[in-house]
Design a protein around this nucleic acid. Structure first.
Lengths: 217, 217
DNA sequence: GTCTATATCCAGATAGAC
DNA sequence: GTCTATCTGGATATAGAC
């Protein structure tokens, strides 16, 4: 019987994830407030009433999603921070991976849009606002530190590292939203162009040529 | 009596502007859907029912605001396009003005946030979506053309000009939203750092020094 | 666990008095 | 023109049958 209880718990968690995915898709398209519980239930393939067996309210789902989104972003930034290379390469590598992710991961695009939406509104649940307050600056701080180190090293352009970090993330975020909302996708994203913008000229040329050899052999 | 009619029309238009300003402030804070007609009326200092003598619905106000916001952005980009200088200087000058505007104009910050909100949702009124579809790309195209010309001239960095244009606008937009939602304002915005990112190194140094003399004399 | 049916609430929009 | 009071519709959340 103890086993059955565990299994039930697992099934329940799986079901909650289906609901979260449905909710994410709806929130990104319609926003928190014009998404109805009915919309989420329909997309999740269950009856509207049943949703309340898993979540107490629409807000609760939203808070769960925001928390996931922030944790994923923080995790990604930590993995860059902990790389065993110089700052210049960290910037280049992270941009390469982020651009790749924009092109290939719908979840990443949705995550960017959800956080943008949440950051841009004071009407979201208090718990979500608290999470944002608590966690949102971490990725900015990580990149800021890397920019600072790169400037000391002489590989990153001059300027307030805090501003460069904001620039770094808002650009990625902006590209993701642009990419997500312009389905024709007529733009070819090239991480090397973006990376070059943060690097001083000499470094820029040298490393780009080195990169060319490995990436486009 | 014809005169009275004109005056009434003028008063009416003034009153509508008060309502639009109230609505903009609310939409930016709470979003279109969680803003109630009551909220707008209260901020405008009138009764809820009276609002319907000026606007038929909440959506109608929103569409008006989106139209204004898009026209302002387009107007700004045209004034840059029509400047009588080389592309490199156009980029530098427009960034200087835009950063200045971020720091001094609450309306500009609100406008950025409203457009971001609208672009990021499919639940907004159809008329607003049509306006965005029709007008939103113009500022991107204007900057794209300038980037292209600058590349031919040898003053703008390499890369798909379409991507550079997206980068240009998303960065400004991102800075505006960051600035708007982080009231501490601990970051000193410096347009020259941003401008330098779009310019090739030699141009970057020369022109920056020339600029220093005129701007910080 | 899952559904359908329903109670409750609240915001948009209207009506009517002043 | 302006207000208060009210109608109406729709969404959340609950209750109850299976």
């Amino acid at each position: 019987m103890a086993r059955t209880k565990e299994q039930n718990e697992k099934i329940r968690e799986t079901r909650k994830e289906v609901i979260r995915n449905a909710a994410l898709s709806q929130f990104v398209k319609q926003g928190l407030f014009s998404t109805r519980i009915q919309d989420i239930a329909t997309e999740a393939g269950i009856a509207q009433g049943l949703l309340y067996h898993y979540y107490a309210s629409k807000d609760e789902i939203f808070v769960d999603l925001i928390n996931d989104a922030l944790d994923k972003t923080i995790g990604a930034s930590y993995s860059v921070r902990d790389m065993d290379t110089d700052p210049c390469e960290k910037i280049r590598f992270s941009l390469e991976r982020l651009v790749e992710t924009i092109e290939n991961s719908q979840t990443f695009l949705d995550t960017c849009r959800l956080i943008t939406q949440a950051t841009n509104s004071t009407a979201i649940p208090q718990a979500a606002q608290d999470l944002i307050q608590e966690k949102r600056n971490i990725p900015y701080q990580v990149i800021e530190k890397i920019m600072e180190a790169g400037q000391k090293e002489g590989t990153i352009i001059a300027g307030d590292p805090k501003m460069l970090a904001i620039f770094f993330w808002t650009s990625i975020n902006g590209l993701a939203i642009y990419y997500s909302t312009n389905k024709n996708r007529e733009v070819k994203l090239d991480y090397r162009v973006i990376a070059a913008m943060f690097l001083i000229e000499s470094e820029r040329e040298d490393k780009n040529h080195a990169k060319d050899k490995t990436v486009f052999k």
